[in-house]
Nucleic acid binder design. Structure first.
Length: 371
RNA sequence: GGGCGGGUACCGAAGUGGUUAAACGGGGCUGACUGUAGAUCAGCUGGCUUUACGCCUACAGGGGUUCGAAUCCCUUCCCGCCCA
């Protein structure tokens, strides 16, 4: 953490075009991280994922600690080697699982007790264990343990979660991370004042980057945008900013314009596995009967493997038949799509025309002519 | 020719006198999906319509019994197994 790992190369309004250097290479920003919770981007090989433009993946410490276990991965030479991904890896701490696994979680200021969704076994995590575990995985970017809270949570509970997140952030900050970067996570619920205070508080702890957590949890767009602004205004210029869990084209471009650099989202891969295709002109659900006899490719001019000679009719058939190839092809198409969105954003920032590019995209999506 | 067992909605399969337009599966259709307990989940799936605890048509075909039948009786047709 001696030298700055994040370099900003160009600006366009509040948007930045930067490079984050990790132990496994450069991560160009704005950047999108495909999600590989279980040390795999479902249905895709590392080379295939890399071909979509991804520099960094997200994996999940909590899930991996349950299966196959941190000891095993460490013994196998670390996470990169284990999953054969040569690029950068950011690991999430398990904070999100406090929300997604709500029924299986108990927590206090000391830490969290999960009941494993796989076998019911009890697992205890503390801020220190979470950071040490991610370090042992060999993660390039370690995320602190935080407590997000869904939209609509009572104010007192949201405040308590934020207070606890700050407490945990300080404990995490005190753990040695070697060559790994350590990112703090802002909470603060959905009120701008609380967000601003949380950002200020986390920013003061000397992390290598700052994540905006606790968003995309049911809040309306305006609330999210205001929350992002409130955070960004209270963060240092020189650190990368990462909105966790954000991933539609427009959401992403909007956040980039507000000064955010990194994103991750399960959407492209999950939508792919449920038959929905992302295109420049909107989503296309291959489950719809209208594509039964559609001989066109998914998207004209798309360079991805799914768009090389396969018809919508065929891909729909593969999907409905539950064929594995559908998952692979549609995942690659969707990841490629998002990869192009961020690549376009990077170029637009360099050219000072992000606003125009975003407006064009908004307009095309607005038409939503996907058929 | 004789005996036995069957024919239920797109398919499979419950139900054997009344809250049955008919359980449950599958299939089909529609929708959801944003730091992945997610190749998952939800709704609909006889027709019509003013989408409504409304009307019509329905449990192989026809005819009966009954206040009331997919369910009981008669009969015809078809399928499977066994005996000649």
């Amino acid at each position: 953490m001696a030298r700055p790992r994040f370099q900003i190369r160009a600006r366009d309004g509040r948007a930045r075009r930067g490079t984050l250097v990790t132990a496994h290479g450069a991560v160009e920003t704005p950047g999108f991280m495909p999600v590989g919770t279980h040390a795999t981007v479902k249905a895709c090989t590392p080379a295939e994922v890399a071909s979509t433009g991804a520099d960094m993946l997200l994996a999940n410490f909590y899930h991996l600690s349950l299966r196959p276990g941190i000891d095993l991965i460490e013994a196998m030479g670390g996470l990169h080697r284990f999953m054969a991904w040569p690029g950068s890896i950011l690991t999430d701490s398990g904070g999100y699982q406090l929300v997604s696994l709500g029924q299986l979680v108990e927590m206090d200021d000391h830490g969290v007790t999960f009941r494993s969704p796989y076998d019911g076994a009890t697992v205890e995590l503390t801020p220190r264990l979470v950071v040490e575990g991610q370090r042992r995985l060999g993660s390039d970017v370690i995320m602190v343990l935080d407590q997000p809270v869904p939209y609509g949570t009572a104010k007192e509970l949201a405040e308590a979660a934020t207070r606890r997140t700050h407490l945990w952030a300080r404990e995490c900050r005190g753990v040695e991370t070697g060559g790994s970067l350590l990112f703090g996570i802002v909470q603060g619920g959905f009120e701008t004042g609380s967000r601003a205070r949380s950002a200020e508080s986390i920013a003061g702890l000397g992390f290598d980057g700052i994540a905006l957590g606790g968003l995309v949890l049911g809040e309306p767009p305006q609330v999210r945008q205001a929350a992002i602004d409130a955070c960004v205004e209270n963060l240092p210029e020189g650190l990368p900013r990462y909105v966790m869990g954000l991933g539609t084209d427009l959401d992403l471009l909007d956040a980039v314009a507000r000064g955010v650099d990194l994103f991750d989202c399960v959407l492209p891969t999950r939508l792919a596995r449920t038959g929905t295709v992302l295109t420049d002109r909107g989503r296309l659900s291959l489950r719809q009967a209208r594509y039964r006899g559609d001989g066109r490719v998914l998207e004209e001019g798309c360079p991805c493997p799914a768009c090389q000679g396969f018809s919508r009719a065929y891909l729909r058939h593969l999907y409905l038949a539950g064929e594995i190839l559908a998952h692979r092809l549609l995942s690659l198409h969707n990841l490629g799509h998002l990869g192009r969105v961020v690549a376009e954003a990077r170029q637009a920032i360099e050219q000072g025309r992000l606003e125009q590019v975003a407006a064009d995209r908004r307009q095309r999506l607005g038409q939503n002519v996907c058929g």
